[in-house]
Structures are given as C-alpha cells and as structure tokens.
Amino acid sequence: MSKGYNCEDLLKLIETKRREMIMIANKTGMTSPQTIQTSIELDGLLNLHRRFTEKAVIMNKAN
C-alpha cells in the first residue's frame, strides 16, 4: 500500500473489500478459501487504517 493514501482512501478500499468479501461468501460459502483470503486482505486494510488513525492521534497530541 502506497504511503500516499489518506484515511478517506483507506475507508473506500475497506468498503470495496468488504463488499467483495460478502459477494464471495454468498457465492462460495463463509469458509471457502476465497472468502478466507478476502477476509485476510480486509483485515490488513483495517489494521492499516487503525495504525493510520493512531498515528494521526499521536501527531495531534504532539501539536
């Protein structure tokens, strides 16, 4: 993921990945390899967003 992404970009990517995961789960099942892989990718985006917002909070407190 490029460092050029901002919080809004990440939220859009998260929503897109979430919808993709739901669509795949509906077609292949909740425990299919495709659903699990998409869930892992979504987790990565969510973790990146969490780190991004935590860093923003720390920077705001420093100012």
Rank of each mutant, 00 (worst) to 15 (best):
S2Q: 10
K61P: 07
M59L: 15
D43S: 00
I58D: 15
T31R: 11
M23F: 14
L46H: 02
G4P: 11
K27Y: 08
K3F: 13
K61V: 08
D43Q: 03
T16S: 15
D9R: 03
M59Q: 15
E20R: 06
R18N: 03
S39D: 01
T38H: 06
M1F: 10
T16L: 14
T38A: 06
K61M: 12
T53Q: 05
S39W: 04
R50W: 07
T31S: 11
M59D: 15
E54P: 08
A25V: 04
I22F: 09
E8A: 11
L10C: 00
E15M: 07
Q37K: 13
F52H: 04
M30E: 13
T53N: 03
T28I: 11
E41S: 02
L10Y: 00
L10K: 01
L42I: 00
I14E: 02
E15N: 07
S2Y: 09
M30N: 14
N60D: 11
G4M: 13
Q37W: 10
E41A: 05
G29H: 01
E41H: 04
L10I: 00
C7A: 11
T53Y: 04
R18G: 02
I14K: 04
I24E: 04
K3Q: 15
E8C: 09
K61G: 09
L11M: 13
R19Y: 14
S39I: 01
T28G: 10
G44T: 07
I14P: 02
Q37C: 06
T35C: 00
T35D: 02
E41P: 03
N63I: 15
